[in-house]
Design a protein around this nucleic acid. Structure first.
Length: 258
DNA sequence: AAACCTGTCAACCGCGCCCTT
DNA sequence: AAAGGGCGCGGTTGACAGGTT
């Protein structure tokens, strides 16, 4: 079976966009008030572009759209990304929504190429497990825990990224880690090398308290991972508009600060 | 100077959700 | 209620630039 392709790959151009294509797309979007009037699928034809509609959408949202910023992430943005990643995991669009001018793709790239490395290096002096040797033994679940509805989560929903956060979040002994799924799930490293887990730690309790103070009753419950992104977003909104409750807490969480 | 390595990021791919029919 | 299609998302790839050997 499999789904039908969204466009005729042989008929559309792929790869880097030319200045002329950018100009055509920009012109079209400006003429239509920044929206794909007939939908993204129809846009290439209407704008005179030999591109897939999805490609046009991506180019516009991630690059051409007015206000999009590239590079130059500030320390404050770093902190927000880390805090939100710790809270919601790799939901980049949600994270990017709280960073004016940033795109999900930009945030994701920044995290994958720089931030996680930065965090890892910063954690290098303390509570560091040998990630490179431990990684192959990690059984990564196929889906992020909050998408599965499972009553409890496993350690690494996405491989390296969460693992890095786990290291950074280490608040206790060598084997205690916070995994950056949305609810601070604490795992301990069993003898078999897997990161599946169970025991809450002081660090998890601390993040629990943060979620609760943000008005989120579900986020910190290890038995409740069904919280919707809307709920998480609402929590963050309340946080931001309530004189930043989270910021206050972050100040006391050195592993989210540097 | 050249080959190789590493880091960055734009772009692609496939999947799931949701809306429309 | 079911099917189909569009859209948005996260993961991954690949080109390219800059650095290192």
């Amino acid at each position: 079976m499999g789904r039908s392709p969204c466009c005729d790959k042989a008929a559309v151009k792929r790869g880097p966009w030319s200045e002329e294509e950018d100009a055509r797309l920009r012109s079209y979007m400006e003429r239509h008030g920044g929206a794909a009037a007939g939908g993204w699928m129809a846009l290439p034809r209407e704008a005179g572009l030999r591109r897939c509609g999805k490609s046009c959408r991506l180019r516009w949202l991630n690059y051409l759209r007015p206000g999009v910023r590239h590079g130059g992430f500030s320390p404050e943005e770093d902190r927000i990304i880390c805090a939100l990643h710790a809270a919601v995991g790799s939901r980049w669009s949600l994270i990017a929504a709280h960073l004016p001018g940033r795109t999900d793709n930009g945030v994701k790239n920044y995290w994958n190429t720089r931030l996680k490395k930065k965090l890892f290096l910063l954690a290098g002096g303390r509570n560091v497990i040998n990630v490179s040797s431990a990684a192959p033994s990690i059984a990564s679940p196929p889906l992020a825990p909050w998408t599965t509805g499972l009553p409890y989560t496993t350690g690494c929903s996405g491989g390296g990224v969460d693992q890095m956060c786990a290291v950074v979040g280490a608040g206790g002994g060598r084997d205690d880690m916070i995994v950056s799924t949305k609810a601070a799930v604490v795992v301990s490293q069993p003898a078999d090398g897997s990161y599946y887990s169970s025991e809450p730690s002081a660090a998890a309790t601390e993040l629990d308290a943060i979620f609760r103070s943000m008005g989120n009753t579900g986020g910190g419950e290890h038995s409740d991972l069904s919280q919707s992104s809307a709920e998480i977003e609402t929590s963050w909104y309340h946080c931001q508009h309530g004189e930043s409750v989270l910021q206050q807490h972050l100040g006391s969480m050195p592993y989210l600060y540097w």
